[in-house]
Nucleic acid binder design. Structure first.
Lengths: 355, 355
DNA sequence: GCAAGCTCTGGAAACGTTTCCAGTATCGTT
DNA sequence: AACGATACTGGAAACGTTTCCAGAGCTTGC
């Protein structure tokens, strides 16, 4: 609004002020070795005095690249993602890069959006957050900058490990563990609350883990105990899916919700149908939001190590961008946080005493 | 990773392919009028066939500006902000600009960070989200690009309305309304759960509204009923602040929490101290998160029109950036959403003691 | 004493655009 | 027939960097 017209000091001004060539100033700015100590301090002083700030556009133009890493977030409105984004953003910025954030609808193809952005040459790397995971080599080839897939499974179909980078928990194993926990408390009629049964996403893997767990305990899979909300984030839809499940078959004594937010909406639905948690129904989830420690009841949930995952994302993309290191897959193990939403089945037989 | 070396098609290639000058191609790309229909289609076809994508760095260099608007978010981990960010981001992107997101600690000075970014000339505008609001004209002058302050109060001390743009609810009035609601239900011993009593932020305004409401109803202000958590987002700290309040003075029959997340943590603390909501204590908050419709009990809260607010933010900054329109202050009115967290005082099991 | 090798420096090209300026052709008007 | 206006086009400068290349001045080794 003020000195907007007045052009800023540039590298030429510095050169002129010091009586050296622009190339020398450039060398000082980029910490090139071939410059005498004397000129170095002289230039540095001038830079400070004249409040010189490099023009990134010019720099990017000649270097034919920018310093911007994009974070493409797909269709999830989840506090877990918010936290993860924050961690990633902090780290990326700290390391001297810029982060550009883009949210996408589920309808958009994240790879196409990424390819488009990469082609505009405004990007040096892409972090994908959320979405599917069954990319073909051809699709992956669309992206001509380094990329990392975050909170995706680390099993990309039959792609070789050198073909992509990922940061994730072992979704299937984690789901198994959640169900195991319920079984070990005596539950056998366990419903699942998922996003979508067959959408090649996190949801499918967790669903698979649920089925595996049941099988390993000799519990027959019952499709009437499956509730699909078709979303991770729309609590209304999750609530309705749970209500429907209850109407359809309320014989279950426990629900495995594939996300904390789902569990919260489910508990509300149960409550509205006269089922108390954990007295009438246990609930276990995956995520480990801070929020879930403060709901009534508190959630028993598998905590994703969001801080470590964010760091892994940031470090990996930066390594790839700087052409150090190869593609890598990180797998993290969530840890169980016990809350008030589960109870041993034997306690269920004891009728609830009203206080 | 693949055609990375192979240089991309540029404007010169297009010019050569069409047998025209680069300036002509540029004119076509920028929709300048002075170009014949014949050449226009010829160039456009070549652009499509050769998959030409403009180099933004070069463009920004000559135009001495970028297409990037920054969103500086300060120290809040709130689903309300997440939603707002998403709305803003969608709109900014839709209008052809890029959004660069930065989270800051409460310790950082948002204006200094903004000024630094603006000076790097990577920015054409800044949206500030969260933080204080008592900026001096001198501080505001540090920012030499258009800016909008979001979810801040729209009363910037004694700055004239032409000096800044803002998008906010009327915090004081909203707090008043929340407290009025409780009073109208018969409550007189009303505690407040705030961020900080005197930090020149939203918190202070809502605190002021609380005091005003009490006064207008002839209820004496009781400082022992004030709980300050020192944060909007750290639920642990909010929980502890509430616990402390209960230990200090548990005579209150209602709590006004200045944010939904605070109310949720408070309800947990109340519950852990044997106080049921709403039977023993009513709770009302400000925010209107979707989440709050699914907690137990559901929250009675004043819903901020997040969609409209996000649009106002995006529209205003774009108008300012495009040098259309003057600084403006938007004030939105939250609407009450009734939940299960409040109850008329006569319903309370503990009889009300007249003072 | 001279070639060869360092260390440091300056000049200039290059990056891919936009935009100013000048120029040509066509056309209508006088 | 001359002229200006109009419609379009091309050439070239400019934006602010980085980097390549060449060269100047020293030192070193023979």
């Amino acid at each position: 609004m003020k000195e907007h017209t007045n052009s800023m000091t540039n590298i030429k001004d510095i050169a002129h002020a010091c009586g050296v060539a622009v190339s020398t100033v450039s060398r000082v700015l980029n910490n090139h070795p071939d410059v005498s100590e004397e000129t170095r301090v002289k230039v540095q002083r001038a830079v400070a005095e004249l409040h010189y700030i490099p023009n990134n556009s010019a720099r990017n133009l000649v270097k034919t690249s920018s310093d911007t890493i994009a974070l493409l977030v797909k269709g999830v409105n989840n506090p877990f993602f918010s936290k993860l984004i924050k961690v990633i953003e902090r780290e990326i910025t700290k390391r001297g890069y810029s982060l550009e954030l883009h949210h996408m609808d589920t309808s958009e193809d994240e790879l196409l959006v990424g390819a488009q952005m990469a082609n505009e040459r405004k990007l040096i790397g892409i972090l994908f957050l959320g979405g599917r995971f069954n990319y073909s080599p051809e699709e992956l080839a669309l992206i001509n900058v380094p990329s990392v897939f975050c909170t995706y499974t680390n099993t990309f179909g039959n792609l070789s490990a050198s073909a992509y980078s990922s940061v994730a928990i072992d979704d299937k194993q984690t789901a198994r563990f959640a169900v195991d926990t319920l079984v070990s408390l005596g539950h056998r009629k366990i419903a699942i609350l998922a996003d979508n049964e067959d959408d090649k996403s996190i949801s499918e893997l967790r669903f698979q883990g649920y089925k595996d767990a049941l099988e390993s305990h000799g519990i027959p899979f019952d499709s009437t105990l499956v509730a699909c909300a078709g979303t991770f984030s729309d609590m209304g839809a999750i609530y309705r899916a749970t209500s429907e499940l209850i109407r359809r078959n309320d014989s279950f004594t426990a629900i495995f919700a594939i996300a904390d937010l789902m569990a919260i909406a489910a508990i509300k639905a149960l409550s509205d149908h006269g089922k108390r948690v954990p007295e009438d129904c246990s609930v276990v989830a995956i995520d480990g939001l801070e929020l879930s420690e403060y709901t009534l009841p508190t959630l028993t949930t598998l905590v994703q190590p969001v801080e470590e995952m964010g760091l892994a994302c940031a470090n990996t993309i930066i390594e790839l961008v700087e052409s150090r290191g190869e593609n890598r897959q990180f797998t993290f193990d969530p840890v169980l946080r016990s809350g008030g939403s589960v109870r041993r089945i034997s306690d269920l037989s004891i009728p609830h005493q009203p206080d």
